[in-house]
Nucleic acid binder design. Sequence first.
DNA 1: ATGATTCTAGAATACGCGTTCTATTTGATC
DNA 2: GATCAAATAGAACGCGTATTCTAGAATCAT
Lengths: 209, 209
Amino acid sequence: MPRQAAFHPHLILDAASRLAARDGPAAATIARIAGELGAPTGSIYHRFPSRDVLLGEVWLGAAETFQRDFGSVLARDPVHDAALAAAGFVVERVRRRPDEARLLMLHRREDFLGGEWPEALASRAQALRRDADEGLRSACRRLCGTDDAAAQRGLRFAVVDVPLAAVLPHLRAGEVPPPLLDGLVIATARAALATLPAPRRRRRGARGA
Amino acid sequence: MPRQAAFHPHLILDAASRLAARDGPAAATIARIAGELGAPTGSIYHRFPSRDVLLGEVWLGAAETFQRDFGSVLARDPVHDAALAAAGFVVERVRRRPDEARLLMLHRREDFLGGEWPEALASRAQALRRDADEGLRSACRRLCGTDDAAAQRGLRFAVVDVPLAAVLPHLRAGEVPPPLLDGLVIATARAALATLPAPRRRRRGARGA
DNA sequence: ATGATTCTAGAATACGCGTTCTATTTGATC
DNA sequence: GATCAAATAGAACGCGTATTCTAGAATCAT
């Protein structure tokens, strides 16, 4: 092998993540990422074919990690408890990993990538979408007996939109979400779930994990 | 008077609003705004001292209009009904004025202005902030008998964050919020309000408008 | 008609960006 | 030690941006 690499892709991704989490993805320019590492701009391009791929990987990495953990909560039994736990999970996650949360919740995918997914990441992005979609559909079927659009929308509102809404102002202000929020989110999520159609009431714990 | 103006400030603001609502504030460049009007870029600078002031005025105008209407709903009596109406107002407002909604809800103030408020707009921005803050505090005192941080946070969650969360996915997709959403928002807002401290229960309609 | 004034018109400037290009250095292998 | 592939190093390029500058056109008061 010819020469040891001074700037591992991992370091570059870290620097880009840090900048994007602190000042937004637009602030993660090639020049600034390189500056953060003390590297010349050219070195970045030895590791990543373009800024789109680099920032796409930053977003995708964070999103995959979050989705894995969120999905595993939502997959639990019984599903009604799982949904409430998933809503609560979002709030707690923001406390535990504020950087990840700022990346994913304060900005949109388009802020990282401009246009379409680059070839290299397209299949990972598709798998992530499918994973998230299937996790929600599955919970929806278990909870309502159907995964029609209205039921999915309601469930998504309860487990994603509501906790997100609760957490956003604090994320923007750079604060830790206050303890008050957990009860608020659980109560509202429960109310949202109550509006969903429940097919046949099943006995509590009948299929408990 | 020397020469009639071909490009009134009003036309320029309209073009900028249209671009910002459709493609985001970053897409509202001076060149594109001028192009939309068939004007040279220089003419924009006869009306507005900088892009920051122009886009700031776009945001501020939309925000002031929204706040005026939202505030008047929240100011009604009895306050509990007013809060629920305010939550519902947000959803309906998105249907009635999708462009305004996209400006205010899909983007942040910083996406319009980069840094600080320009001198020319600072006092309007401050008045808007105070107006919004005082509207919420007032409703909070009427509802809970206190405007401490926790009560304010809960009320804000019910009347702002929850409807915003419900509406955001549809705004992003460029769809009209479905009718399903109104019930969902009212139900969850009611649940959020129920978690707030209620000082002494007052008789219904005791101070009705 | 003349002239002052305020606009349009659009080229010119300076800057930051992503990206590419041309060295130059490094270190394992022959 | 010579060789060579893979890395660093950083200047250079093309582009789009906000902004400024210079010129010309229009309109009202005189």
